[in-house]
Amino acid sequence: MILNDVWFVAIAILWIGYFLLEGFDFGVGILLPVLARDDTERRVMINTIGPLWDGNEVWLITAAGATFAAFPEWYASLFSGFYIPMLVILVALILRGLGFEYRAKHDSVLWRRRWDAALIAGSAVPAFLWGLVVANVVRGVPLGPGHHYVGTVWELLHPYALLGGFMTFAIFVTHGAVFIALKTKGSLRVRANRLAAGAGVGAAVLAVGFLAWTHFQKASPVGGVLAALAVLAWLLGLAANARRAEGWAFTGSATTIVLAVASLFVALYPDVLPSTVNPAYSLTVENASATQKTLGVMTWVAVIFLPLVLLYQSWTYWVFRRRIGVSDIPAG
């Protein structure tokens, strides 16, 4: 039973890491047509995440793989019930990756605009749908006696889930704007800083509404405290952004994402996928988990290899830490 809980926490950390790191990636992609005034500035924005985005997506692959191995029942019910939104997210992420790789392959304005559109859509769609998926997981879905999803895709589009989607979209936009302000210089930095201030207020309203709704339904004292701290961190981040202290502003938005997602997992526990049909049909950390032997082997693998992955990714961020601007982009 202890290993079940350990792997629930581990999977929560993996999803937190994914939303934290991929969140600003999505934000940068969404803001490409908003902040950039020409192709050179678009290239500046893309280069802020160019060395990082594919490494950030490893967190998603690892989170999905760990869920499959540690909680196969959870994985099966989750990916069958959310088949359509997950498929749309996958297609969007593929288009986004192609946009990064192919926009510079041909010297044509039309060519670049088309791949930019793929990059923008590939960022915006997951930014919304991940919030919708997470909201449904926390609230619960129609699970039958065999833990099978017995609803339709339309049952995923209720007000609480839509609010979750709009919240993650707004938070990622703000997180991305703060990241651009942190990583660029000149007029692009100034515009990103200003946009983060306005977007941050809207995101705060949505986040307060969503988190309050969540913890009113779940009545989780610890989750409620984490949610309140997340809101406080967001406000402190906005205050730092107003002073153009981009490092502290990014710390604030990053801390908010960590605390907010953690509060949702705390509210979810001990369930991993509640049933809205009958609580007895819910998947929990106990009835959805793999065998203790499997969890034990996974634990040793994680202990050995996870530090190496974290060290490598930290080194990558350190190497590409400096600001860039229009003057750093070669012609062409």
Rank of each mutant, 00 (worst) to 15 (best):
V150F: 07
W213L: 11
K183L: 04
L156H: 12
G224E: 01
A135E: 04
W213C: 03
V91K: 04
A212D: 09
P330Q: 09
R42Q: 03
V258Y: 02
W74T: 11
G332D: 11
L238K: 02
G97T: 13
A228T: 12
F320S: 01
V28L: 08
N287V: 07
L226R: 09
G23H: 00
V125D: 11
V178A: 12
W115Y: 15
A69K: 01
T67D: 06
T152R: 13
T256M: 14
L157Q: 06
R43G: 10
G176F: 08
V297D: 12
A12R: 13
D25G: 08
L35A: 06
V138R: 02
P307S: 01
L195V: 12
W74K: 02
P270V: 03
T284A: 02
A254Y: 02
T152N: 10
H175V: 08
V297Q: 05
W154K: 09
I171E: 09
T168P: 02
A196Y: 09
T62R: 04
A227M: 12
N241T: 05
Y18I: 04
L20W: 15
I324L: 06
W130G: 00
A170P: 01
W111Y: 07
H215R: 01
W213Q: 09
L78V: 09
A239E: 03
G151L: 08
G164D: 01
L78A: 12
A170M: 14
A302R: 06
R113T: 08
V285S: 10
S123Y: 07
L119P: 00
I30F: 03
G140T: 10
V6D: 15
S282W: 06
E101I: 14
L3H: 10
G200M: 14
G17V: 03
I329M: 15
D54G: 06
L90V: 10
T40D: 12
T40M: 11
G200V: 10
L264N: 03
V231R: 03
P330W: 05
G223E: 00
G186E: 02
A118N: 11
L143R: 00
W213S: 09
L308I: 11
P307A: 00
S77I: 03
V201Q: 10
S108C: 05
A177G: 10
W300A: 13
F79H: 14
W315P: 00
F100C: 08
P51V: 03
W15S: 02
A10E: 07
G50D: 07
V9H: 08
G23W: 00
E22Y: 12
R322V: 06
L60H: 08
E101G: 07
V303C: 12
V319Y: 09
V261K: 03
R42N: 01
G23R: 00
L226F: 15
M86L: 15
A76F: 14
F19C: 11
Y317A: 01
G224R: 00
H106P: 04
L306N: 06
G144N: 05
S282Y: 08
A12N: 14
F100E: 07
H215C: 09
K183I: 02
R243A: 07
W315Y: 13
A192K: 07
L206M: 10
L232C: 07
F172H: 05
D25V: 03
W74A: 10
V319Q: 05
V91A: 14
T291L: 03
N193Q: 15
R37C: 06
S187W: 10
G202W: 06
T316Y: 05
R323F: 09
L311F: 15
W318V: 07
T284S: 13
T251M: 05
A212L: 10
